[in-house]
Design a protein around this nucleic acid. Structure first.
Lengths: 155, 155
DNA sequence: TTAATTATTGCAACCAAGTTGCATTATTGG
DNA sequence: CCAATAATGCAACTTGGTTGCAATAATTAA
């Protein structure tokens, strides 16, 4: 492992999740840590090119792993061109703004939702054309199914 | 064109948008009109199978066309498994709920956003695990670029 | 109603994104 | 440092969506 990649903070994150410290993982994590806006896979691949030799399959596997360990969050975007961002406690879930023209994704304030009107009010900086709110979890029937299953296991 | 497909309401929608009335378009539109929940492409293809012989390319083209004419809305979903719903005036933009287990997408109330807390309050029916709010339009720089362009054209 | 014009569909081939299995290589822990 | 374990790279494959073009259907105006 080249020593210049051994960033303390980066290493610590992997350690905390019990993941082994490979140069590939450190490099990917580094990119996510040193960017202000969420990045899509294409950007990640480009950024990695100059830093390390890494197979595209490995990138997918690392991102998927990081997601599982809740190190990163994936932001769904039309056309499946998804973005990734670090999921630290200091960076809670928040709305995002996607520019139709330049496709840049920027973060909006993590407002409490009682203040939600705020980001709907016509804004000086953004012209809002579309709002997508997708909530996920378990629906009523799946939730009940899970409960019943647990109960029957107990008996 | 088989006469049984000639649904008045369906025909009217195409007419209003100035689109020619092909059996394929009518069939796709019919499915969108006779479903209560948004449907993904897979469901659309399955539903069409029993009704009409249609090429998969045609389905993509029709959906894309309907989107352009704002007859339908596309609901972005993780993994690019997107859903479609009719975009009538009686069916305004609203939040959606996606079940992690059965992948069913259901519509939530089109609340005014000052009431937004409502769908965040722990609910008896849904267990909310993830919330994605994606807003799109033009970012500040792209908006300015457009303005400047218009101005210079005028001169 | 018919014939010419125009638009839509079907087909085949293609492209890109993401995935899988397996051999090779690196990391970890003793 | 070495053995055991885990991650990476590679090649091939799958899936979703797109494109160009020929065949077919819908529209229009006579």
């Amino acid at each position: 492992m080249p020593p210049d990649v051994k960033d303390k903070a980066t290493l610590h994150i992997l350690q905390k999740s019990g993941l082994s410290k490979t140069p590939q993982r450190l490099a990917v994590l580094n990119i996510l840590m040193n960017t202000v806006v969420p990045v899509n896979i294409k950007s990640i691949r480009q950024a990695l090119e100059s830093k390390i030799s890494i197979n595209r399959v490995t990138i997918y596997r690392i991102l998927s792993l990081f997601k599982q360990h809740m190190i990163i969050r994936e932001i769904t975007s039309p056309g499946g061109n998804n973005y990734f961002e670090l999921a630290t406690m200091k960076n809670p879930v928040h709305p995002h703004f996607l520019c139709r023209k330049c496709a840049a994704l920027s973060c909006l304030e993590p407002l409490t939702f009682s203040q939600a009107n705020h980001w709907l009010t016509p804004d000086k900086d953004y012209s809002i054309e579309n709002i997508e709110i997708n909530i996920s979890g378990l629906c009523a029937s799946c939730r009940n199914a899970t409960k019943l299953q647990k109960r029957s296991v107990k008996q």
